[in-house]
């Protein structure tokens, strides 16, 4: 180990590239460490994302159903079908949000 260091120190160009390599390794290690320690998406924000995504789906579905009821006079059916579809859309939103969050977590671990 110390032999290798000696040989590297003898040639300035080797020394520079060695420095570059070590520096990059340090930066990389530090970045990974920071990412692990600082999962900038706190649980609170993830929870609120799921919540608002689901809520918005249901609300838009029900609202759309009500509007159709008003316009076409299908009184209960627009709301019923809209609510069901909105529920499905909200679930779809949550599934997509979960996929996004998991995907970003995976790339963070890989890189």
């Amino acid at each position: 180990m110390s032999d290798q260091d000696e040989s590297n120190h003898s040639d300035p160009r080797d020394k520079a590239s060695d420095f570059e390599r070590r520096l990059n390794a340090k930066i990389e290690a530090r970045r990974v460490e920071e990412e692990r320690r600082n999962p900038s998406r706190s649980g609170w924000s993830i929870g609120l994302r799921y919540g608002s995504d689901f809520f918005a789906g249901v609300l838009v579905g029900a609202g759309g159903g009500l509007v159709i009821d008003r316009l076409l006079g299908w009184t209960p059916w627009g709301l019923i079908v809209g609510l069901i579809l909105g529920f499905a859309a909200g679930t779809l939103n949550v599934v997509r949000a979960a996929r996004d969050i998991n995907a970003s977590g995976d790339t963070g671990a890989k890189n």
């Binding site: 995504d53 918005a56 789906g57 838009v60 579905g61 759309g64 499905a88 859309a89 779809l92 939103n93």
Partner: peptide, 14 residues
Amino acid sequence: TPIEVISFLSRPLS
């Protein structure tokens, strides 16, 4: 398709 439309429309709200 309606589910996708509702999902799209719910984006600005959420």
